[in-house]
Design a protein around this nucleic acid. Structure first.
Lengths: 353, 353
DNA sequence: CTGAAAGCGCTAACAT
DNA sequence: ATGTTAGCGCTTTCAG
């Protein structure tokens, strides 16, 4: 009994107890403790021994050392998430889903900056290589083309791409961008608009291309022409949206409505409209893709198409776990819940300007 | 030569090369390689041997295994960051600073959810304990009082608290909340306002208390009375701000200006003003604490007091590194750059409503 | 200037 | 139903 107390005291003082301490206290060998803790299905053990072990674990406050485990199993139970800009509510929304799903699967998330990663790969390889990660989730930076992205990826590292596809490299999860853009366009058409423009994302980004296609298809399906200056490419950022709308108002004054590829750009566009003295929605209707809390608080509140951010993150994480478990890579499109128009104040029937 | 080629091939195939592979290829022992790579200052080595080792590292693309290192050194070079809500631009702004500083110091950041942490400590202890982290950065959830926070903290884990202090537990970094709130108040006073209210944060949160004190001091210094309903406590969230302003407009119609404890709440307040038909800034001036990109895009654009989010993150991270290196804990207030009023469109001289 | 040896904490194959 | 053994990859005395 004194021995036990002494051990407890020693352990409390030091860095923590080891599996050997637990084993001694429970009068078994470390291997048994390990197998109990890891719920080895092949293990046959007396109920009494098991409780002795559990009590010992409890008493010592034992926590397995992750480094020891990782070294032995060659797995870290850590995934890396590389995002260009956590400050962007779209990305952080996705990150919430990732973190949640990781936690539920006893994984933990390491955060990295995707821009830095593409700029200084050696830095991040040193930091995140060397067995620190079991897999990676990557959101492609806007200015990173396929060739450079391919070069960056480690073929030996299970990887899932967020919001983007890479020809020849399966393992990506994207939104139903076509449907979302089409839904936005259809909403405007239903309101009676016939001269509709599109503030697209960066031309080189594949999600922007898909959204543009969705816009074009919806217009075509309705038999509506797309004016020569009706598609303006811009960044996904707010400044991009602001400048793009400014250009559009000048180049195509007949336009009564616009589908914006991202809420963040749409918030910028709202600013440009205000500066130009164009009233929204009276003179110009705006529908934006992606729904974030700020959309309820702009003036006027933005009508958006909601995309399931959390679900994308969850799905991506689940897919990564499959890949880590050696399943073959596959691509996935998040279709449920389907992109849904959230009517607020920025879209209304057309009225001449 | 063939031996070398064979080794390279073997290594490329498998999980990666080890320090032993490098040592063999360079005709030295692992210990020398280790000391070269870790820049052991006591090491005396022939220049030629050193280049041989460097070449071997290069050829094999050797990366030290983090688990092995961590196990041996009892340090992981990982810090945990616990945030209540990454979706909040304030927190993600701070996180940017943390990640940057960590990377520059060869540390890497593990992300966790502070709300979940306070709700299910065992989960996170299992995930983040066991030597996985060298230290933690924690943003206190709004509803977590001192007692419960203390209980949650592991006294053996170097910890830095973000935006909050904990009596009896030094190691926190906060903004100059008094100065920021005072600056906002003084700005309104300079514009000629005399009946000024304060939308404060949650009453139990210490940063909210400091901001309220800053407001009160500035009012007192100007000889201005604070009306009986002029201080309304609300959450830091947008809904909180909306409701709080609604209440305020009813309870204190004489108020011509308001200092809001957080931009996010201010955006909500802007919504409430619009709904109530109160024009900003003509009938009501608003100044918000914290500056984020959205503030430029509200209607009207928000006048704010800029707080150095990135700097807080950086400082906190640096402080944590000190603590990890066994420096005694200390508290710090970020005073530079000082809180600065960013004039946009939401504050103007008073006019009767 | 370099090598030998021990051990960090854990798991898994193989005994008994 | 439990024990023995070996070794994951690395760093760090201590020897030479």
């Amino acid at each position: 009994m004194t021995r036990v107390r002494a051990m407890i005291r020693r352990v409390a003082r030091s860095r923590g107890s080891t599996i050997v301490d637990v084993a001694k206290l429970a009068n078994v060998t470390p291997s048994v403790v390990s197998r109990v803790l890891n719920e080895d299905p092949t293990l046959r053990i007396k109920a009494e021994t098991r409780t002795r072990i559990e009590r010992a674990v409890e008493m010592l406050g034992y926590q397995p050392n992750h480094a020891g485990r990782a070294l032995r199993r060659s797995r870290s139970d850590v995934v890396g998430v590389l995002l260009p800009d956590i400050t962007n509510p779209i990305y952080s929304g996705i990150l919430v889903g990732i973190e949640q799903c990781a936690r539920d699967s006893d994984y933990v998330v390491m955060l990295g900056n995707a821009d830095e990663f593409s700029r200084r790969p050696q830095t991040y390889n040193r930091l995140l290589g060397g067995g620190r990660l079991d897999g990676m989730l990557i959101q492609r930076p806007n200015d990173l083309d396929d060739t450079r992205l391919s070069r960056l990826l480690d073929p030996g590292m299970p990887t899932v791409l967020l919001n983007t596809t890479l020809p020849g490299t399966p393992g990506s999860v994207i939104f139903d961008d076509w449907r979302a853009a089409a839904a936005a366009t259809e909403h405007l058409i239903a309101l009676g608009h016939t001269s509709i423009a599109h503030l697209a994302g960066p031309p080189a980004v594949d999600s922007a291309r898909r959204r543009r296609e969705g816009f074009e298809q919806a217009m075509e399906a309705a038999g509506l022409p797309i004016g020569p200056s009706a598609i303006v490419h811009a960044g996904y950022g707010s400044d991009g949206g602001r400048e793009a709308l400014r250009d559009l108002l000048r180049a195509a004054p007949e336009v009564t409505a616009v589908v914006v590829a991202s809420v963040v750009a749409a918030i910028g566009a709202l600013g440009a409209a205000r500066e130009a003295g164009v009233r929204v929605p009276e003179e110009l209707s705006i529908v934006a893709l992606h729904d974030v809390w700020m959309a309820s608080y702009t003036a006027p509140p933005l009508t958006t198409v909601r995309m399931p951010l959390r679900e994308l993150g969850e799905t991506a994480m689940r897919m990564l776990l499959e890949r880590i478990a050696d399943a073959p890579p596959r691509d996935e499109v998040i279709r449920h819940p389907a992109p849904q128009v959230v009517e607020r104040g920025s879209a209304a029937p057309p009225r001449a300007r």
